[in-house]
């Protein structure tokens, strides 16, 4: 048995390494100043796909992303780790997409890819943390969804068994393919790129599809297809408290502790 696997990936600004120039003076995000990385949980989804391919070597892994052409960087990365094919859907008409419009465009692209047994993706992307795109793609493709997946326990014919890491424990579920699976942070890390694949893919170009290529209803794309609107963006203004500066010395700290004990806050 060989599997046709689509892995949804995203290039994201590295929000964990935000520098002082991350914001423009007008409060908008200075994307140019942020390093762009492979969304961490999407790498874990890729690893799950690679494990399947290891077990069933004839399987084909297609990575799919929506974004600017510079997202080629993560496509090359995925190819170097063992993915077979990389596609970027990229078009000015996708600009301003919220999760609903994004999931619609991705679902259209997956339909164009054709036959698939499963769609995998990270649980959420670190630039939005919404965890919405996975379930929304599943709904649009009318697939059962298995979110928060941690480990693939079994894949046999059309039968798949996975564990899910929940707020309060672990659940083991089974389903028949096709399904959509979102992979959570505690899943196994992705293997490193292979040296020979790195060389081979150093200049690889992703396939780039524009909006027309995925045959969408145009009004469901981009800003027009996005029901959520940003009413306003506020820069964070700290309500400054008249705090007490405690001297960093034994006497200063001792005074603070005595005050807290007297006020019955501690003790």
């Amino acid at each position: 048995m060989n599997y046709q696997i689509v892995v949804l990936i995203k290039q994201v600004p590295d929000t964990q390494n935000v520098g002082p120039d991350a914001m423009n003076a007008d409060g908008t995000v200075n994307r140019a100043a942020l390093p762009a990385i492979f969304n961490p949980e999407d790498l874990k989804a890729l690893e799950m796909a690679l494990q399947i391919k290891e077990q069933y070597p004839g399987s084909v892994i297609t990575v799919l992303t929506m974004g600017p052409e510079r997202a080629s960087a993560i496509i090359r990365d995925a190819l170097s780790r063992g993915a077979d094919r990389g596609i970027i859907i990229s078009d000015a008409r996708f600009a301003g997409s919220d999760t609903l419009a994004t999931s619609y465009a991705l679902a259209c692209a997956i339909r164009k890819i054709g036959e698939f047994d499963m769609v995998l993706g990270g649980r959420q992307a670190i630039d939005g943390d919404t965890a919405q795109v996975g379930p929304q793609v599943a709904e649009k493709l009318d697939l059962p969804q298995i979110t928060y997946a941690e480990r693939l326990l079994e894949l046999n014919g059309k039968h798949i068994v996975l564990t899910r890491r929940l707020d309060n424990g672990v659940e083991t579920v089974e389903a028949e393919l096709p399904v959509l699976v979102t992979v959570t942070a505690s899943a196994p890390d992705c293997r490193y790129p292979h040296a020979h694949l790195l060389l081979k893919n150093a200049k690889a170009q992703a396939e780039i599809w524009n909006a027309d290529a995925i045959r969408p209803e145009i009004e469901r794309l981009g800003l027009k297809g996005s029901p959520t609107k940003v009413k306003k963006i506020d820069n964070v203004v700290l309500a400054h408290k008249e705090g007490v500066q405690v001297e960093c010395s034994e006497a200063g700290i001792n005074g603070l502790v005595m005050t807290l004990v007297q006020d019955h806050i501690i003790g």
């Binding site: 963006i233 506020d234 964070v236």
Partner: peptide
């Protein structure tokens, strides 16, 4: 809060 935590976004679905 959104993006890097430097901003607070007010979202609406009109």
């Amino acid at each position: 809060p959104a993006f890097g935590g430097n901003i607070i976004a007010t979202i609406v679905n009109p």
